[in-house]
Design a protein around this nucleic acid. Structure first.
Lengths: 338, 338
DNA sequence: ATTGTAAATGTAAGCGCTTGCCATATCCCC
DNA sequence: GGGGATATGGCAAGCGCTTACATTTACAAT
């Protein structure tokens, strides 16, 4: 498209300003070490030459990139959007940049992307959940890459984390459901294999179910990837059972939205004929009809705290941090007393 | 957290394998230039040392990063998710990596992120829409960075683009709406300032409106950022007017979802009392109730074609590419004949 | 054997920046 | 005005890799 038309470098700026490259570098990075006069002169030439520092060269020489990497399971739905947004805002505020990849819920891909981000010189990493191959953690430890795990919490774990107790939260919701008279619960869970959050949420329902004296065999469960369409499909299957459930508890709001949509198509009145619950409290939750009873997760807070913790780890080499945030049950119209 | 425990470099591998760094580099990048025996030996040491190439060093020495950058206005909703996903898939297939930033619909931020990505050594860029400061295009041209603009199309423009005609598409939908008997249309548009897609969509409605002999003064318009909540709020305002609209045409599906939700809260029956239309055909569109009449955009195709075009630009230094994709009107229950 | 050619490998010069260390300027006080 | 403390600025050595060019090796043909 173009014959690369010389791109200005530090050297060019130095020559043009009549100083050494060291001085230009200082003007860019440690202004206080430079006299006001020199600074002004240098900045002016930087401006006039349209100079932009080469990031790779900088990262290489400084052995730090002020970049942190995040790998989330998916960008296709809003689950992680708000939290990540807050994470990024806090990062920018502290002078860091964010690099995001999505692993499509595939551990192999995630491992690969971790290496990729590390190879790119990420100073730290944000990962979702804790369930991954031990080799990955070893790799991270060997390279000395500070890492924070979010969206889950592992009391007693050796890893830094910022999250909440998925299991306890879902159990709380299930308790509520049973309290409201429901005795025929069906579950649409995310795929639990390789996804600790999904697994824990499911376990939370099971905890409650058993604690109330019911048998696990009487708790129908469908596992399916977190997509709105899958919620719809799973619902269709569940209501074909001999014993119709009175409530569908979903692994997250996206599945629940699919359920509500399909239920209406099939002529069910939610919540009169059947109740539905979700998890996450994404924005959509209060805009579906009927509004979704769900577990409210403090996404923005989680993002902010994760950013602060990670920076702490990077800059002060703190041993470890662990924050468990509180969640709450958001009662809305989709869940009704039976 | 750790005393950085020596990270293996190319040199380490070379020494351990008893060859030169050049040979190791060749084993990693141009296998065919190396004898099978050497290759095997080197790869083995790479493996045993757990060596990962340093990306920054590589990009610097090779003057190319096999990375391409994309800046989208927002990650908070699903508008760009599917297209970007397809874009990335095609990129990976061709051996490129993707770096994504979001500009929050702020031109200043976008300009900054463009510089950031270029500084990081991006070989090419994907940008959304065409409306941006001329200085940005000049910068890109000066650095010789191949760039593809997507989600919009500019016949006759000098820039490479892959998109569709927002204006014509929306006009088509508006024609349909008017054909169905609607004479009192209200519009909830995205913020048109700095957003050519939003501006063109709005213009499309206005085109149709005037072509049918109506006066622009009789077309109420609210501009608001693309958020579900904002659609709800805007709707509330619009129905307070003396002359109630019979249809609300929204700048995208997210706004429309907010409208549908709020309409129900206020006791309106959609579409009997009032019709609603969207734009984009995101997954949600067919899962709200009633299902949304909208403009179907071939997001995945757009992503794929954009990736191919960009790579073409980068590798073959083709002069320019421009693809205009077809969109279609997706008629669903939210729009009713009056 | 000798030579020619191509394939395989090595040598070393950067890529654009940061930073430890050293050399000046600058300034203040006596 | 001299001595020393301190603020500035320069020098040059890398950071880990690629690659043009030089050198060596392998092998076939003479």
């Amino acid at each position: 498209m173009h014959e690369t038309p010389h791109i200005p470098t530090l050297d060019d700026v130095a020559k043009a300003a009549g100083v050494s490259t060291a001085t230009v570098s200082r003007c860019l990075n440690e202004k206080q070490k430079v006299s006001a006069k020199t600074l002004a002169k240098v900045m002016e030439t930087v401006e006039s030459l349209g100079y932009t520092p080469n990031f790779n060269a900088r990262a290489m020489a400084a052995k730090q990139s002020r970049t942190i990497g995040a790998i989330i399971p998916t960008m296709e739905n809003a689950i992680f959007a708000r939290g990540l947004q807050a994470f990024q805002e806090k990062l920018l505020e502290k002078g860091y940049n964010l690099l995001v990849s999505s692993s499509a819920y595939q551990p192999k891909l995630e491992a690969q992307q971790i290496r990729e981000l590390v190879a790119r010189g990420a100073d730290g990493l944000l990962l979702i959940g804790y369930e991954r191959d031990e080799a990955v953690y070893e790799y991270l430890a060997r390279r000395g890459i500070p890492t924070v795990l979010a969206w889950a919490s592992m009391p007693g774990s050796e890893h830094a984390s910022v999250g909440f107790d998925n299991r306890a939260a879902m159990r709380l919701l299930a308790d509520k459901v049973i309290e409201m008279g429901h005795r025929r619960i069906a579950v649409i869970s995310g795929i639990v294999d390789g996804n600790d959050r999904a697994a824990e949420r499911l376990a939370g329902i099971q905890d409650s179910w058993q604690a109330h004296g019911f048998h696990l065999n009487d708790l129908p469960i469908i596992q399916t990837p977190y997509e709105i369409e899958n919620g719809a499909t799973a619902f269709e299957q569940l209501v074909q059972a001999d014993v119709k459930p009175t409530v569908i508890m979903c692994g997250n709001d996206v599945l629940a939205a699919g359920v509500i949509s399909k239920a209406r198509d099939l002529g069910f009145n939610v919540p009169n004929d059947i109740s539905v619950t979700g998890f996450d409290d994404i924005e959509l939750a209060k805009h579906v009809f009927p509004a979704l009873t769900t577990v409210h997760v403090p996404h923005r807070q989680m993002g902010r705290v994760a950013a602060e913790s990670l920076i702490e780890l990077i800059e002060h080499r703190v041993k470890k941090v662990s924050h468990q945030l509180d969640v709450s049950i958001e009662m809305r119209a989709s869940l009704q007393r039976i």
